[in-house]
Simulated scan of single mutants.
Amino acid sequence: MVLITDVRRLASSRAAPINRASTFIDLAPSGAPASAARGVLHLRAAILAARIGDTELADSHPSAAVEQIRPGQERANYYGTKFGAANVGIHRVAVPVELSDGTTAVTRTATIRLPRGTAPSRSGHYWIDLSRAWLLHGDHRHALDSLHEARRIAPQLTRYHPQVRETVYALLD
């Protein structure tokens, strides 16, 4: 699996659990549950790659995750992943935010429509990331509006999330 090779390139101890998990998933029979797990691993690897600044690798993993989407996967919630198109879309916005590229993140939001029933924690985190994207883009009004939306959807997540505090401090500054 390409995931193992790519993740090994990550110079982080955080990649070790992803490597082990991808090795075990490769042993699993093919099907929607294994595809969901593979897709989630690609999304986690994308965030890790973005955090170490590897843009090419970070952008390749969401594309690989799309290939793992199977009909009904998100509704079935295999292994608690709720993996599906909405999750991939959320990560397509999160990756450029982690790369400090607010403009790309804001541009990608034009194609994102979170379906009804998206978990509040997922939707809330999406809006937190979108707030960070708007801040990086230089639009403080939209950044604040996005934080308000995150708070409406997932108040506890928004209240205690460290990235929210950092965003608020930056807005105040």
Score class of each variant (00 low, 15 high):
137 H>E: 10
56 E>Q: 11
130 L>F: 10
171 L>V: 11
18 I>N: 02
21 A>I: 01
161 H>D: 12
160 Y>N: 13
120 P>D: 14
16 A>S: 15
101 D>R: 11
3 L>V: 11
153 I>E: 07
31 G>D: 09
153 I>N: 08
154 A>F: 02
15 A>I: 00
95 V>T: 11
2 V>R: 14
33 P>A: 02
162 P>N: 09
69 I>C: 08
80 G>R: 06
99 L>F: 00
142 H>T: 06
46 A>E: 06
139 D>I: 12
164 V>K: 05
35 S>C: 13
151 R>A: 15
119 A>Q: 14
125 H>M: 14
7 V>W: 05
14 R>N: 13
100 S>D: 11
28 A>V: 08
52 I>V: 15
38 R>Y: 09
49 A>R: 07
125 H>V: 07
139 D>M: 05
119 A>G: 07
87 N>F: 02
81 T>S: 06
171 L>R: 12
107 T>E: 07
62 P>E: 06
144 L>K: 10
107 T>D: 08
39 G>W: 07
127 W>E: 11
99 L>H: 04
38 R>P: 03
49 A>C: 01
74 E>S: 15
109 T>F: 03
153 I>Y: 08
30 S>K: 13
118 T>G: 02
141 R>E: 15
168 V>M: 15
107 T>G: 04
165 R>G: 00
54 D>V: 09
6 D>W: 04
113 R>V: 08
145 D>N: 14
